[in-house]
Amino acid sequence: MTNTLNNLTVLGAGVLGGQIAWHSAFKGKRVVVYDLFEESLQRCQMAHQQYAAIYRAEMGASEAMISETQARLSYSCSLADAVTNADLVIEAVPEIPETKVAVYQEMAALLPAHTLVATNSSTLLPAQFASATGRPDKYCALHFANMIWSMNLAEVMAHAGTAESTLRAVTRFAIEIGMVPIPIQKEQNGYVLNTWLVPLLNATQSLVTNGVSTPEYIDRTYMIANRGCALGPCGIMDIIGMKTCFDVMTYWGTENQDAQLLANATYIKQHFIDQGKLGLQTGEGYYCYPNPAYQAADFLAVPDMSAVEELVALVRPQALAAVS
């Protein structure tokens, strides 16, 4: 059966919104990227230039394929213009409920009658926003993973009022752009992926916030314990983006009155966001890009004996400093 979801609008020009837009255009969809801020659209266009290089190197994309992808992409700060021809809108705005509701309510009167809407929310439920869309039967969750070109999964989650025709069309769309659809059988904050990823990243950030270990040694531990993986949880946070990590930790820390989560959010704000270090998107987070330390050939190597003093200095540094 031929899909009719050929005109895509992506709301939000952040890290994952930009990836969804580029990859969908690469797979033949006509895509409009919408963001409220021109600066965000400019960053997205710069990211798309980086993705072009990645797709050449990792996916064997020819110059013609890259040119065709770029021709299928457009960018807009006008919500009305962005959605006027949309068959599918994927919402990828910040993980702040009030922000999502405001966007949905503004968009509701602008959409063509046939348009489907999907949220890429990391941890929030489609039921929280279905009524705000004005078309709950045409609304569901379609959640992607960062580095969409290699981590090609798309989690499909309904709310009670989602029509089967919507799920069928959205699932076909996912397959058309090269995703493996992951059916979520009931509403679950975090789907499958983020149900285990968010606790991992929170535990990681707690180790940093509380001074238990350093980011590089936390990642070494993870990568040695999971031989063959390309990066550890601090590297993953850089790829997700510090703003998204901050939003998720702030929301759930407040919702659950979790002091450690809120402390982790504060750490991220002070050490990264306030300094303009948003992760891979800006070239610096826990690591510096394009050559992060975890990609070095010797990152997991047994150290030379000359490193003993440096390693010992990291063990109980406050106690050792007091003794000396």
Rank of each mutant, 00 (worst) to 15 (best):
M1L: 11
A319K: 12
C245F: 02
N210I: 05
S74D: 11
F272R: 01
L197R: 11
N202I: 00
E255C: 13
F26D: 09
M305R: 15
Q50P: 02
D274E: 09
C229K: 10
S40R: 04
S76I: 14
S206W: 02
V192I: 09
P94G: 01
L201S: 08
T214A: 01
Y104L: 07
G279W: 11
Y191M: 11
T4I: 06
P181T: 04
E255V: 03
G276K: 15
P233G: 09
H271T: 12
A86V: 02
A169F: 01
G18L: 05
N189H: 14
E58G: 01
L111H: 04
R56G: 03
D35T: 10
H114I: 00
I177T: 01
Q275Y: 04
I175W: 12
A297C: 01
R135V: 04
Y34C: 07
T209W: 12
A102S: 14
M223C: 04
A108G: 02
G285T: 05
I218A: 13
L200A: 11
L197K: 04
I268Q: 03
F144I: 04
L16G: 05
L73F: 06
Q257W: 14
Q128A: 10
S213N: 14
A225M: 06
E155S: 07
F129H: 03
H23D: 05
Q70Y: 07
I273P: 05
T133G: 11
L261G: 01
S122A: 05
V31L: 11
P112I: 05
I236M: 14
I175Q: 15
A145M: 07
R43Y: 04
N210A: 11
G285E: 06
P215T: 08
T282H: 10
D81P: 06
L36R: 14
A127R: 15
Q318M: 09
Q270N: 12
Y139S: 04
S24H: 01
M157W: 05
F129E: 11
L231G: 03
L16C: 06
W196C: 15
S62F: 10
M46H: 12
I184A: 11
S150E: 14
Q205N: 08
Q188P: 04
D247S: 00
T166M: 08
C288N: 10
D219S: 01
Q49D: 12
T166V: 00
A297N: 09
L8C: 12
M107I: 02
D247V: 08
